[in-house]
Design a protein around this nucleic acid. Structure first.
Lengths: 143, 143
DNA sequence: CTAGTTGCAAACCCTTTGCACTTCA
DNA sequence: TGAAGTGCAAAGGGTTTGCAACTAG
């Protein structure tokens, strides 16, 4: 079996295991998450869901995101000056570079930075619970 | 003249130079900022201001913070799950470690991390406009 | 059957804004 | 004096919540 670069979580299995009902709205939302590789916000997920079933409500999207977040199936990011955006918890930890012109999110990872963060926290007498590293920038003009 | 570790901005001078009027509310707010070394939010600044002059409104606090931010005299931070918090733009750039139990903010600085960030952005073809690095943690229990 | 979920509308929190009135320069 | 700034109350955006109706298991 080929190993995927990004293993997507099997949401339905996770929900079932957690004893959470798999309802029609949840199935649709989870389907959308599985199908996406970007970082949509709740409204965007709602729009995509409504295109499949117009009966779905924004509240349900928010509630479902909260449940999935609780299960560790997705991550919530509060990038600057905008609503929370969500991403699947697949793959390993990474940080984000946000394109200020387009809103695009590029993921990156630096073991070296992670290590330095730990050293800093250590020196300050703290244990890191989590961190947030976001770079905000613009594409370099090929000058 | 002794060089201060953290040079506080002379807000009144900055305002005057920018052609912005120095009003009573602004004078009080700026006084509060000068007197603090923590990272208060708008409501906290409002409370401290109201203790000096009960006539001051929260709107004015927000408006003044926006003006000062525009002048580069203060920085606004949107730490997780809370209102914006402000700090004087004195001193050089630094990042933040937020104590999850107390909300305390500890400043730190790592040239090495900054450098790595630049290398990463470079490699991705981006110029960094600014970044955000926040560590969220708890005091290490002296075990 | 019945506890968990939903949609809806109202409430929330933080922040901004319109407006008539004040105040600084 | 008159443009800039103020306080107030109302509006704004994103998100959460109370509730009666619905539905999964």
């Amino acid at each position: 079996m080929a190993k995927q670069k990004n293993q997507k979580p099997d949401y339905e299995k996770m929900l079932r295991k957690a004893g959470i009902r798999i309802t029609r709205p949840r199935r649709i939302i989870v389907e959308i998450l599985t199908a996406t590789d970007d970082h949509p916000d709740a409204l965007e997920i709602f729009r995509r869901a409504a295109a499949i079933d117009s009966g779905i409500s924004l509240s349900t999207v928010y509630r479902t995101m909260k449940v999935l977040e609780g299960l560790g199936a997705i991550h919530r990011h509060a990038f600057e000056g905008g609503p929370s955006r969500f991403e699947q918890a697949s793959g390993e930890h990474h940080d984000h570079l946000i394109d200020l012109d387009t809103g695009d999110v590029i993921e990156f990872k630096s073991d070296r930075i992670e290590q330095l963060q730990n050293e800093i926290a250590e020196a300050l007498g703290y244990d890191i619970v989590h961190h947030r590293l976001e770079l905000y920038g613009r594409k370099r003009r090929g000058r």
